[in-house]
Design a protein around this nucleic acid. Sequence first.
DNA 1: ATGGCATCTCCTAGATGA
Length: 259
Amino acid sequence: MKLASWNINSLNVRLPHVIDWLSANPVDVLCLQELKLPNEKFPYAQLKAIGYHSFYLGQKTYNGVAILARDSMPFNEASIQRNIPGFEDPQQRLLAVTLDGIRIICAYFPNGQAPGTDKFAYKLKWMDALSDWLATELATYDRLALLGDYNIAPAECDVHDPLAWEGQNLVSPVERAAFAKLCSLGLTDAFRCFEQAEKSYSWWDYRMLSFRRNAGLRIDHILLSPPLTAACERCIIDKTPRGWLQPSDHAPVIAEIRD
DNA sequence: ATGGCATCTCCTAGATGA
Protein backbone atom coordinates (compact mmCIF):
# COMPACT_ATOMS: atom_id res chain seq x y z
CA MET A 1 0.00 0.00 0.00
CA LYS A 2 1.30 3.41 -0.96
CA LEU A 3 0.27 6.61 0.82
CA ALA A 4 1.23 10.05 -0.43
CA SER A 5 0.85 13.71 0.47
CA TRP A 6 1.20 16.78 -1.73
CA ASN A 7 0.53 20.47 -1.25
CA ILE A 8 -0.55 21.43 -4.75
CA ASN A 9 -1.08 25.19 -4.21
CA SER A 10 -4.41 25.50 -6.08
CA LEU A 11 -6.16 22.43 -7.44
CA ASN A 12 -7.65 24.60 -10.20
CA VAL A 13 -4.20 25.28 -11.56
CA ARG A 14 -2.60 21.95 -10.68
CA LEU A 15 -5.27 19.38 -11.62
CA PRO A 16 -3.32 18.37 -14.76
CA HIS A 17 -0.21 17.80 -12.60
CA VAL A 18 -2.18 15.71 -10.12
CA ILE A 19 -3.58 13.57 -12.94
CA ASP A 20 -0.18 13.20 -14.64
CA TRP A 21 1.54 12.40 -11.37
CA LEU A 22 -1.05 9.78 -10.41
CA SER A 23 -0.74 8.07 -13.78
CA ALA A 24 3.01 7.76 -13.22
CA ASN A 25 2.66 7.06 -9.47
CA PRO A 26 -0.54 5.07 -8.93
CA VAL A 27 -0.56 5.36 -5.13
CA ASP A 28 -3.51 4.00 -3.15
CA VAL A 29 -4.10 7.19 -1.18
CA LEU A 30 -3.13 10.77 -2.05
CA CYS A 31 -3.67 13.57 0.46
CA LEU A 32 -3.82 17.07 -1.04
CA GLN A 33 -3.45 20.44 0.67
CA GLU A 34 -4.15 24.00 -0.42
CA LEU A 35 -6.98 23.22 -2.81
CA LYS A 36 -7.92 26.92 -2.84
CA LEU A 37 -11.37 26.15 -4.16
CA PRO A 38 -14.87 25.74 -2.70
CA ASN A 39 -16.50 22.30 -2.51
CA GLU A 40 -18.76 22.98 -5.49
CA LYS A 41 -15.70 23.47 -7.69
CA PHE A 42 -13.96 20.23 -6.64
CA PRO A 43 -13.12 18.20 -9.77
CA TYR A 44 -14.64 14.97 -8.45
CA ALA A 45 -15.63 13.58 -11.86
CA GLN A 46 -12.21 14.15 -13.46
CA LEU A 47 -10.52 12.27 -10.63
CA LYS A 48 -13.16 9.55 -10.64
CA ALA A 49 -12.44 9.10 -14.35
CA ILE A 50 -8.84 8.12 -13.56
CA GLY A 51 -9.88 5.66 -10.86
CA TYR A 52 -9.95 7.70 -7.65
CA HIS A 53 -12.81 8.70 -5.42
CA SER A 54 -12.34 11.81 -3.34
CA PHE A 55 -13.16 13.12 0.09
CA TYR A 56 -12.72 16.85 0.28
CA LEU A 57 -13.12 19.90 2.45
CA GLY A 58 -12.64 23.11 0.54
CA GLN A 59 -13.18 26.82 0.88
CA LYS A 60 -12.82 29.79 -1.43
CA THR A 61 -9.33 31.21 -2.05
CA TYR A 62 -7.41 29.64 0.83
CA ASN A 63 -6.64 26.32 2.50
CA GLY A 64 -8.73 23.25 1.68
CA VAL A 65 -7.74 19.57 1.91
CA ALA A 66 -8.70 16.38 0.12
CA ILE A 67 -8.08 12.65 0.34
CA LEU A 68 -8.04 10.72 -2.94
CA ALA A 69 -8.43 6.96 -2.66
CA ARG A 70 -8.17 4.33 -5.31
CA ASP A 71 -11.64 3.07 -6.26
CA SER A 72 -10.87 -0.40 -4.92
CA MET A 73 -10.21 0.95 -1.40
CA PRO A 74 -13.10 0.25 0.93
CA PHE A 75 -14.12 3.13 3.16
CA ASN A 76 -16.58 3.95 5.88
CA GLU A 77 -18.75 6.99 5.21
CA ALA A 78 -19.47 7.42 8.92
CA SER A 79 -15.73 7.67 9.66
CA ILE A 80 -15.31 10.99 7.85
CA GLN A 81 -14.13 13.78 10.14
CA ARG A 82 -14.00 17.38 8.99
CA ASN A 83 -11.67 19.65 10.97
CA ILE A 84 -10.56 19.08 14.55
CA PRO A 85 -13.51 18.22 16.81
CA GLY A 86 -14.19 20.95 19.35
CA PHE A 87 -11.88 23.43 17.62
CA GLU A 88 -13.98 26.14 16.02
CA ASP A 89 -12.20 27.21 12.85
CA PRO A 90 -13.41 28.87 9.63
CA GLN A 91 -10.21 27.65 7.93
CA GLN A 92 -10.58 24.23 6.34
CA ARG A 93 -7.38 22.42 7.24
CA LEU A 94 -8.07 18.86 8.31
CA LEU A 95 -9.90 15.85 6.93
CA ALA A 96 -9.89 12.26 8.16
CA VAL A 97 -11.39 9.05 6.83
CA THR A 98 -10.90 5.38 7.59
CA LEU A 99 -9.74 3.56 4.44
CA ASP A 100 -9.30 -0.21 4.47
CA GLY A 101 -8.99 -0.08 8.25
CA ILE A 102 -6.34 2.63 8.22
CA ARG A 103 -7.12 5.98 9.78
CA ILE A 104 -5.96 8.51 7.19
CA ILE A 105 -5.64 12.10 8.40
CA CYS A 106 -4.83 14.84 5.90
CA ALA A 107 -3.68 18.10 7.46
CA TYR A 108 -2.65 21.54 6.28
CA PHE A 109 -0.96 23.10 9.30
CA PRO A 110 -1.15 26.88 9.61
CA ASN A 111 1.84 28.72 8.19
CA GLY A 112 2.38 30.86 11.28
CA GLN A 113 3.84 33.88 9.44
CA ALA A 114 6.43 34.77 12.12
CA PRO A 115 7.01 34.07 15.81
CA GLY A 116 5.17 36.60 17.95
CA THR A 117 2.34 37.23 15.49
CA ASP A 118 -1.33 36.35 15.89
CA LYS A 119 -0.97 33.79 13.11
CA PHE A 120 1.88 32.12 14.97
CA ALA A 121 -0.27 31.88 18.11
CA TYR A 122 -3.05 30.35 15.98
CA LYS A 123 -0.60 27.79 14.59
CA LEU A 124 0.36 26.69 18.10
CA LYS A 125 -3.25 26.63 19.27
CA TRP A 126 -4.23 24.59 16.22
CA MET A 127 -1.44 22.11 16.88
CA ASP A 128 -2.40 21.88 20.54
CA ALA A 129 -5.96 20.97 19.58
CA LEU A 130 -4.60 18.50 17.02
CA SER A 131 -2.45 16.83 19.69
CA ASP A 132 -5.37 16.43 22.06
CA TRP A 133 -7.60 14.96 19.36
CA LEU A 134 -4.84 12.69 18.03
CA ALA A 135 -4.38 11.16 21.47
CA THR A 136 -7.98 9.95 21.37
CA GLU A 137 -7.68 8.87 17.74
CA LEU A 138 -4.60 6.79 18.54
CA ALA A 139 -6.51 5.15 21.37
CA THR A 140 -9.19 4.18 18.83
CA TYR A 141 -7.14 3.35 15.75
CA ASP A 142 -4.13 1.06 15.78
CA ARG A 143 -3.20 1.90 12.23
CA LEU A 144 -3.09 5.66 11.76
CA ALA A 145 -1.24 7.95 9.36
CA LEU A 146 -1.03 11.73 9.63
CA LEU A 147 -0.03 13.14 6.27
CA GLY A 148 0.32 16.72 5.19
CA ASP A 149 2.02 20.06 4.99
CA TYR A 150 3.18 20.59 8.57
CA ASN A 151 4.85 23.94 7.89
CA ILE A 152 7.62 22.82 10.23
CA ALA A 153 11.13 21.63 9.41
CA PRO A 154 11.77 19.28 12.36
CA ALA A 155 15.58 19.37 12.41
CA GLU A 156 18.60 21.32 11.18
CA CYS A 157 19.18 18.74 8.43
CA ASP A 158 15.75 19.63 7.06
CA VAL A 159 16.88 23.19 6.31
CA HIS A 160 19.16 24.22 3.44
CA ASP A 161 20.70 27.11 5.39
CA PRO A 162 20.14 26.58 9.13
CA LEU A 163 22.10 29.68 10.08
CA ALA A 164 20.03 32.01 7.89
CA TRP A 165 16.81 30.38 9.11
CA GLU A 166 17.69 30.24 12.80
CA GLY A 167 14.74 31.11 15.03
CA GLN A 168 12.48 31.93 12.09
CA ASN A 169 9.01 30.71 11.27
CA LEU A 170 8.93 27.03 10.21
CA VAL A 171 12.08 26.18 12.16
CA SER A 172 11.69 27.91 15.54
CA PRO A 173 12.25 25.87 18.74
CA VAL A 174 8.63 26.27 19.88
CA GLU A 175 7.34 24.86 16.57
CA ARG A 176 9.81 22.00 16.73
CA ALA A 177 8.68 21.28 20.28
CA ALA A 178 5.07 21.13 19.06
CA PHE A 179 6.17 18.72 16.32
CA ALA A 180 8.03 16.62 18.89
CA LYS A 181 4.89 16.54 21.02
CA LEU A 182 2.98 14.99 18.13
CA CYS A 183 5.71 12.37 17.79
CA SER A 184 5.62 11.70 21.53
CA LEU A 185 2.04 10.49 21.13
CA GLY A 186 3.54 7.50 19.37
CA LEU A 187 3.98 8.74 15.82
CA THR A 188 7.11 8.35 13.72
CA ASP A 189 8.43 10.48 10.87
CA ALA A 190 8.48 7.82 8.13
CA PHE A 191 11.08 9.68 6.07
CA ARG A 192 13.69 9.43 8.84
CA CYS A 193 13.22 5.67 9.22
CA PHE A 194 15.44 5.18 6.19
CA GLU A 195 18.74 6.28 4.74
CA GLN A 196 18.14 9.46 2.79
CA ALA A 197 20.22 11.68 0.58
CA GLU A 198 21.61 14.74 2.36
CA LYS A 199 19.74 17.95 1.64
CA SER A 200 16.40 16.24 1.04
CA TYR A 201 13.63 18.83 0.97
CA SER A 202 9.93 18.98 0.08
CA TRP A 203 9.47 22.72 -0.51
CA TRP A 204 11.42 25.31 -2.47
CA ASP A 205 10.56 29.01 -2.70
CA TYR A 206 9.39 30.11 -6.14
CA ARG A 207 11.84 33.00 -5.93
CA MET A 208 15.60 33.23 -6.19
CA LEU A 209 15.94 30.07 -8.29
CA SER A 210 15.54 28.11 -5.07
CA PHE A 211 14.72 24.79 -6.69
CA ARG A 212 17.66 24.95 -9.06
CA ARG A 213 19.92 25.73 -6.08
CA ASN A 214 18.14 23.12 -3.92
CA ALA A 215 17.55 25.87 -1.37
CA GLY A 216 14.62 24.14 0.31
CA LEU A 217 13.02 22.94 3.51
CA ARG A 218 11.50 19.61 4.46
CA ILE A 219 8.12 20.62 5.83
CA ASP A 220 5.82 17.95 4.34
CA HIS A 221 5.66 14.79 6.38
CA ILE A 222 4.07 11.39 6.86
CA LEU A 223 3.79 10.39 10.51
CA LEU A 224 2.85 6.77 11.25
CA SER A 225 1.50 4.91 14.28
CA PRO A 226 3.63 1.99 15.59
CA PRO A 227 2.08 -0.86 13.52
CA LEU A 228 2.36 1.19 10.32
CA THR A 229 5.91 2.27 11.19
CA ALA A 230 6.85 -1.38 11.64
CA ALA A 231 5.32 -2.19 8.25
CA CYS A 232 6.79 0.82 6.42
CA GLU A 233 9.32 -0.28 3.81
CA ARG A 234 10.18 2.98 2.10
CA CYS A 235 9.60 6.72 2.24
CA ILE A 236 10.69 9.13 -0.45
CA ILE A 237 10.16 12.66 -1.71
CA ASP A 238 9.45 12.81 -5.45
CA LYS A 239 11.10 15.98 -6.74
CA THR A 240 10.03 15.29 -10.32
CA PRO A 241 6.85 17.39 -10.50
CA ARG A 242 8.64 20.37 -8.89
CA GLY A 243 10.59 20.56 -12.14
CA TRP A 244 7.51 20.59 -14.36
CA LEU A 245 6.15 23.71 -16.02
CA GLN A 246 4.13 25.93 -13.63
CA PRO A 247 4.72 23.64 -10.65
CA SER A 248 3.52 23.65 -7.09
CA ASP A 249 6.26 24.87 -4.75
CA HIS A 250 5.94 21.56 -2.84
CA ALA A 251 6.91 18.03 -3.86
CA PRO A 252 4.94 14.89 -2.97
CA VAL A 253 6.04 12.56 -0.15
CA ILE A 254 5.31 8.84 -0.52
CA ALA A 255 5.34 6.06 2.09
CA GLU A 256 5.17 2.41 1.15
CA ILE A 257 3.51 0.12 3.68
CA ARG A 258 3.79 -3.69 3.58
CA ASP A 259 0.34 -5.32 3.37
C1' DA B 1 19.08 43.92 0.32
C1' DT B 2 12.05 43.03 3.27
C1' DG B 3 13.02 42.22 -2.83
C1' DG B 4 12.56 37.97 -5.48
C1' DC B 5 7.34 34.58 -7.33
C1' DA B 6 2.72 32.51 -7.55
C1' DT B 7 -2.20 32.50 -6.61
C1' DC B 8 -6.44 34.35 -5.36
C1' DT B 9 -10.23 38.07 -5.34
C1' DC B 10 -14.25 42.54 -3.44
C1' DC B 11 -9.32 41.36 -9.92
C1' DT B 12 -4.74 45.65 -12.63
C1' DA B 13 -3.49 46.08 -5.85
C1' DG B 14 -3.29 43.81 -1.82
C1' DA B 15 -3.27 39.65 1.00
C1' DT B 16 -1.16 35.32 1.73
C1' DG B 17 2.07 31.97 1.45
C1' DA B 18 6.78 29.63 3.59
